[in-house]
Amino acid sequence: MKKLISTPYLLWMAVFIIVPLIMVAYFAVTTADGAFTFDNLAAVSQYANIFVRSIYLAAIATVICLVIAYPLVMILARIDVSFQSTVLMIVMLPMWMNFLLRTYAWMTLLGNNGLINMLFGLFGLGPFRMLNTQGAVVLGMVYNYLPFMILPLYNVIVKIDKSVIDAAHDLGCNNAGTFVKVILPLSVPGVMSGITMVFVPAISTFIISRMLGGGSNLLIGDLIEMQFLGNSYNPNLGAAISLVLMVIILLIMTLLNQFDDDEDRVLM
């Protein structure tokens, strides 16, 4: 009985996870009539600049998230235990709001008639063009995905045994030495899952780039969306782009895993 009970899920997984991925691969190498072709995959190379831009912006956003989150988590981990969960909850709370609304909030803030430009105006500066720039896209990524960096980092750093840190001090390390030689290496699994959890959604987003980047900062996600629901309906090309996106992510993740020999990943 125990064996049979997972059968419905196994069927579900086959039909709604595995088969759809096979269909992506199938559409990527066929024409609209179903004939075999490499044209779609070859056509993806026309969009190399969009791929480069997506990787570049997502990488910047990931690094900024890491730089903001690491000190924050160190501070959080040192707060009195009875307050810690409350402060963490306050930090994570914005994540519970729909991310369209969070992105919309920045749209209104950054606009030419927005609040930030009005504040600049009080000092006789601006208005600066902030909306529809690459900076705005990166800002949107950082704002939306920062919690995904904070959470795995926190889970790892809070579990570091205090006696290990004390031992490092006893053995003659100063604060900086303890950080570099003890805390940093022990937090690598958290850093790695944080990077994954920020980079993957950032490289594939289409909302943030559309709402904050205007029409001129297309990312891979926008390109895919346009082939399926946009003006240039072409699911075969869309499938080819999706396939290349998956391969790129897989390559980058494998590359990152070289730095991380710890098998235990902290997801959430």
Partner: peptide, 15 residues
Amino acid sequence: IMNPEIVTGVSLMLL
């Protein structure tokens, strides 16, 4: 979990 959401969405849409 690991796949980008857009790929999950697009693959199901194709199906």
